[in-house]
């Protein structure tokens, strides 16, 4: 694996009057509830170690109060850590002075906010051009670039409107266009779609995936919605009470939850829609009996079941890049659907 684009190492954040003392306690193994009860300090983050790879979408998921928004704000130092480091492109950004930090925020990272955080007194075009205006660009310099990204997110011709004249979904498109205009490698998205209606949220997720295929940015995405996390994530990090409970490839986490908390968490999702043939299949290159239907490794179990038309005895050939990588029996599909602890072998 190549060196990560962003690497968070031993990061601690403690909110309170005397964080240094509480830090020792946290290092000694104290968790959030005890620290609050005995020292009246809030444990924001405890010993976070996450590597975020170039060109991947890393999703940080957790319920409210799990510290996910605190974590993403450490990546561009909107919040200063109590201890630990954040390494971006091989440099520890905790060592940056104000000017270097501003340069990083202008060129290396951009951010999309939950409540959009557009400047209400500036037009949509000016909002989109914010990263260029911050650099001192004049209208004729930034206009072409801003219009390009505005068109790209599907807001052609809305440049002269003011943000309050747009709907929530359109405002967030402006937020995304603003982040794209900076041409930064890294995009931080803090619950970017949480304030939107479900349908619009799906649209926006599709837009993000489409942009990502084209632009290959390193995206850090925060969400409390597991379906959204599974849809977007290349790498999934699950936080609870300021600690990483499990991280890894989302399909892997689904099949091998390491913690009862995660089992609870994934209990309610539609597994048929999320799990893929590749995850459930038996890895083999021995051909299954004649007449087995070929399916793609990325097909969801829902697609597999539809294809099978209800027949429980079918076996599929799972194909990837024109080669068979495994076989998938319908029985395995059905077992995978009920969850991690199968109810006894039949």
């Amino acid at each position: 694996m190549s060196t990560p684009k962003i690497s968070v190492r031993n990061l601690y954040k403690i909110f309170g009057d005397a964080p240094a003392a509480a830090l020792e306690q946290a290092r000694a193994g104290m968790h959030k509830p005890e620290l609050l009860e005995q020292h009246n300090h809030v444990l924001g983050l405890r010993d976070i170690n996450v590597d975020m790879q170039d060109g991947e979408i890393t999703v940080i998921m957790g319920l409210s109060g799990s510290g996910k928004s605190t974590l993403i704000r450490h990546l561009n130092r909107l919040i200063e850590p109590t201890a630990g480091e954040v390494v971006v492109d091989g440099e520890n950004i905790m060592e940056y002075g104000p000017a270097r930090l501003r340069r990083m925020r202008r060129h290396t990272m951009s951010m999309v906010f939950q409540k959009f955080a557009l400047l209400p007194h500036r037009t949509v075009l000016e909002n989109v051009a914010t990263p260029l205006i911050v650099e001192g660009a004049r209208r004729r310099d930034y206009e072409a670039e801003a219009v390009k990204w505005l068109d790209r997110v599907g807001l052609d011709g809305q440049g002269e409107q003011y943000p309050h004249q747009l709907s929530g979904g359109m405002q967030q498109r402006v937020g995304i266009a603003r982040a794209l205009t900076s041409n930064s490698d890294i995009m931080l998205m803090d619950e970017a779609f949480s304030a939107l209606d479900p349908l619009i949220r799906t649209d926006m997720q599709d837009l993000l995936l489409e942009l990502q295929r084209e632009l290959q940015k390193t995206i850090v995405f925060i969400t409390h919605d597991l379906d959204e996390a599974l849809k977007l994530a290349d790498h999934l990090v699950i936080l609870k009470d300021g600690e990483v409970v499990q991280q890894g490839e989302p399909q892997h986490i689904l099949m091998n939850p390491s913690d009862p908390y995660i089992v609870d968490f994934i209990a309610d999702i539609n597994r048929a829609r999320v799990l893929r043939a590749r995850t459930v299949m038996t890895r083999t290159d021995i051909s299954p009996p004649e007449g087995a239907v070929e399916i793609a490794g990325t097909a969801t179990l829902e697609e597999v079941i539809t294809l099978g038309g209800g027949d429980a005895d079918l076996v599929f050939r799972v194909m990837e890049r024109g080669r068979q990588t495994g076989v998938l029996a319908m029985r395995d599909v059905l077992t995978a659907l009920v969850g991690t602890e199968p109810a006894g072998a039949a």
Binding site: L118, V134, S182
Partner: peptide
């Protein structure tokens, strides 16, 4: 949040 956005885009 708007102030945070201003910071995040590197405004002085």
């Amino acid at each position: 949040e708007v102030i945070e956005a201003a910071d995040a885009f590197g405004m002085t």
